[in-house]
Write a protein that binds this DNA or RNA. Structure first.
Length: 801
RNA sequence: GGGCGAUUAGCUCAGUUGGUUAGAGCGCCUCCCUUACAAGGAGGAUGUCGGGGGUUCGAGUCCCUCAUCGCCUACCA
């Protein structure tokens, strides 16, 4: 057939690609400009492939359109076809076209030569870690990386197992992502057309066949060396070793011209031998390596691979080589333990690091991969510099502090859930003296350019990416008030420590048995031991948010809210010196351990407080002195201290807390002035009475009671408010309004009756009785009995009123 | 189109193998500047756990389905 536009003769072929249901069922094929047409070309090599475009988007093909921009050419082509009367119909059709993310330009497919890394299995297998003590064989690169996560890599020569690469916090999910991608074993295109990066170390060029044959005797010697790889590519794409090529090219019908490709193992050869190759018409490939190729080398290249002894280091840094019997940096640090990265990086980078580590060193670069969540903006979109919806950590640091940033980021990392972090712009249009105005970027109207937003008050555009100074736009910074949580935490920690420091003057260490300490001391030591275990457990589970929640609850909810308040009386001037000394010793110990526990989350503040603590209480401990350290960053992680777990103390303080909360609630609902100290009588018998008597003083102190009397014979006065918990009753003297009291107790009883009813229904269900585990049934029966008892107590009190 | 996830309080998120009345922080309401802390304290309100089906004595949790959203990947002249 003749192509009407250029008069070129083109073949007519049949192929499954053409769809008879679309248009005429006939379609032009442009293998160099369409991935599907490219596939057609692979099936019909005779049609050839013409690269229609130049790299700048103008028409390359000879003819009337040469040099025209592609958009202009398309219009011209339509006009020309129309002029020739060849256009029957024009239909609108929606198609999807790729656009460059950065420039938004339409991406045009373009035929070009690229380098690929062969990922699939290779006949005879490949050698991994060649020449190292960890050398082993694998079927192929991708397969080796699959074996790494399957735990299927062969053992080392000495019989020890190679590490299995494990994913956290969701091994199944993330390993599946990794495995599914690798299982395709698709070749990895490593050529990139960028002006920066690691240049692909291959010399190539077209040579006349005669030229190559003349050089043959010399090449045979040079190119069979182990440190040079060389190939000859025939015009039909066949790729041969130099020796095979020379044999082949001496036969009749040999092509006139061939392509030569040479790669030196040692990159210095590019400089020494390069000029000679250039003279022969070869050039170093102008493309650079894929970012991920260079990045894949990071775990070992940063440690001086392949020669740590001679690896370049910055001025003032020690050599990476080993000496005096010490290992080199590479031997010491490789393999590493844990890689922390994002989910989208699993295939791009993690898999490739495993591949290059196994290939170059015969070992995995790390055994654990911790995938953190992705931080998104308030709309659920990825933060991006060009969109201006991101936050600069340095801005957060200057606004809230480095510890606040770290604390909140740890707190956000809960598991596999992506994190929405609403972003606000700080309005640059507030006047002197006006309060700062934060503008939520999720709802703000976009400005005239990408990365700009309108200030809703002044309607002026703000530049969030600092790119529009020329256009006269005012730059604005982004922040997120979520980080205030971290700053508040630091403030609380600072103040709690300050309270301790104000009272630790003259603190000494005397070996004591934890069991001999006062109730509140035994309690906080017990809680500390449990918090320590829980924080440790959560960190081991790669769950920083859970760890920080436990640490926070211990520090704020138990140490500050209860323990510091409970021991205040012991620091009063009139207190016995020994009691004070014990309080100091326990406080110093607990603060020591708390600082260590919080150090991973707020390192700078804990480091500062550590210095003060050390100078005020140089020796800290209970049974024995703790190990000390000049810097907390070097200090040992808090000791397990499980021996200090004290169920009895915990039960007593838990009772104090429960009754205190109930008394406070009653005080609040009767609007008792917070500072007023009231009389309290608690009617209780048996175990409850014993428990409350242990914590009697503490309860009085914390509940703002002038005095607390506890006993079976305690009776209310007429003006008492009543608090009923279980089979005990507390009477708050002189606070009551009778109507209000009846109303309150009536509501409480009603709520309890509803719960009792639903519980009775459940327990009366034969299916439940027959099938539920006995301990669940027992538990529910127990709680039903307790609720019935409580209701009875309330009803009795109501009758009395 | 394929794959992997998500949907719980106004907001951001927890909720372990199914088991009492579903939690936290922020925000909100009331009271309090009490000699560590108002960036704080005491108390309080707020949820048909995305919709619909199913399994079970029992479902936020397991299964199916629909809706919406996100990520990875492919992509029809």
């Amino acid at each position: 057939m003749t192509l009407p536009l250029t008069g070129r003769e083109i073949p007519l072929i049949t192929d499954e690609w053409a769809d008879p249901s679309l248009g005429t069922g006939c379609v032009k094929i442009t293998p160099a400009h369409d991935p599907n047409d490219y596939e057609v070309w692979q099936r019909h090599r005779e049609i050839g492939a013409v690269n229609v475009l130049n790299s700048n988007g103008t028409i390359a093909a000879q003819g009337p359109y040469q040099g025209l921009d592609r958009f202009a050419a398309r219009k011209r082509i339509m006009a020309d076809l129309d002029a020739q009367g060849l256009v029957e119909k024009i239909e609108d059709r929606t198609i999807e076209i790729d656009h460059s993310d950065r420039s938004k330009t339409i991406v045009e497919p373009w035929l070009s030569k690229q380098w690929f890394v062969h990922m699939a299995d290779v006949d005879g297998g490949i050698v991994m870690g060649r020449g190292t003590s960890k050398e082993f064989h694998s079927k192929g690169l991708a397969q080796a990386a699959l074996d790494a996560t399957a735990g299927a890599l062969p053992a080392f020569a000495d019989g020890t197992k190679r590490a299995q690469v494990m994913f956290h916090p969701d091994q199944d999910r993330y390993r599946k992502m990794y495995d599914q991608w690798l299982a395709e074993k698709r070749d990895w295109c490593i050529s990139r057309q960028l002006w920066w990066g690691h240049r692909i170390p291959v010399w190539r060029g077209d040579l006349p066949t005669q030229h190559l044959l003349m050089l043959a005797p010399m090449l045979k010697g040079q190119l069979s060396r182990d440190d040079v790889a060389a190939w000859i590519v025939l015009p039909d794409g066949t790729r041969l070793s130099v020796a095979d090529a020379i044999t082949r090219l001496q036969q009749p019908n040999a092509p006139q011209s061939i392509e030569v490709q040479i790669c030196f193992r040692d990159e210095s050869a590019d400089a020494t031998t390069g000029p000679m190759l250039q003279g022969a018409g070869l050039e170093l490939d102008p493309d650079v390596l894929d970012t991920w190729f260079s990045s894949a080398l990071w775990p070992h290249s940063t440690l001086g691979w392949p020669h740590p002894e001679t690896a370049k280091v910055d001025a003032g840094q020690p050599s990476l080589g080993g000496k005096d019997g010490h290992k080199s940096a590479l031997d010491y640090w490789y393999p590493g333990s844990c890689l922390v990265t994002g989910r989208d990086i699993i295939t791009l980078w993690v898999a490739r690091m495993v591949i290059t580590g196994l290939y170059n060193l015969g070992d995995v670069p790390f055994s654990s991969v911790f995938l953190h969540a992705t931080i998104l903006d308030g709309k659920g979109e990825r933060m991006s510099k060009s969109k201006g919806n991101g936050i600069d950590p340095l801005d957060i640091i200057s606004r809230y502090g480095a510890d606040a940033l770290r604390y909140v980021v740890c707190e956000l990392q809960t598991g596999t859930q992506d994190i929405r972090l609403p972003v606000q712009a700080i309005s640059p249009f507030t006047k002197e003296g006006e309060p700062e105005r934060l503008i939520d970027l999720a709802t703000a109207k976009p400005g005239p350019y990408l990365g700009t937003f309108l200030d809703p008050v002044t309607k002026q555009p703000m530049d969030l990416i600092g790119q529009y100074a020329k256009e006269g736009l005012t730059p604005a910074k982004a922040t997120s008030d979520r980080f205030a949580v971290g700053a508040n935490f630091c403030n609380k920690l600072f103040n709690a420590a300050r309270f301790a420091f104000l009272n630790l003057e003259g603190s000494t260490f005397v070996a004591r048995k934890a069991g001999d300490l006062p109730l509140e001391d035994r309690w906080i030591l017990s809680r500390l031991a449990k918090a320590r275990a829980a924080v440790h457990g959560s960190l081991s589970d790669y769950n920083p948010a859970a760890a920080i929640a436990v640490a926070r609850e211990f520090f704020w909810g138990e140490l500050c809210d209860w323990y510091l308040e409970l021991i205040k009386p012991r620091f009063r001037p009139e207190t016995d010196a020994n009691e004070r000394a014990i309080a100091q010793q326990t406080l110093a110990f607990v603060l020591d351990q708390t600082l260590r526990l919080l150090h991973p989350f707020v390192p700078f503040l804990t480091e500062t407080l550590w210095q003060s603590l050390r100078s005020l209480a140089p020796v800290r401990g209970i049974e024995a002195p703790l190990s000390d350290s000049e810097l907390i960053v070097h200090a040992k992680w808090p000791e397990a201290g499980t021996a200090r777990i004290d169920a009895e103390a915990e039960a007593a303080v838990a009772a104090v807390q429960q009754w205190c909360a109930a008394i406070r609630e009653a005080r609040a609902s009767y609007q008792v002035v917070p500072r007023a100290r009231i009389g309290v009588r608690i009617q209780a018998t048996g175990a409850l009475a014993t428990l409350l008597q242990r914590g009697q003083g503490l309860l009085a102190h914390m509940a703002g009671a002038e005095s607390i009397a506890i006993g079976a014979d305690q009776q209310p006065t007429k003006d008492s408010a009543t608090v009923v918990i279980g089979d005990g009753k507390a009477y708050l003297l002189g606070v009551v309004d009778l109507d209000k009291e009846r109303d309150k107790l009536g509501k409480q009883a009603e709520k309890l009756r509803q719960q009792i009813q639903s519980m009775e229904q459940k327990l009366g269900n034969e299916g439940f009785r027959a099938k539920a585990p006995p301990q669940v049934i027992a538990q529910q029966e127990e709680s039903l009995a307790a609720m019935r008892q409580q209701v009875a107590g309330i009803e009795q009190r109501l009758r009395e009123l």
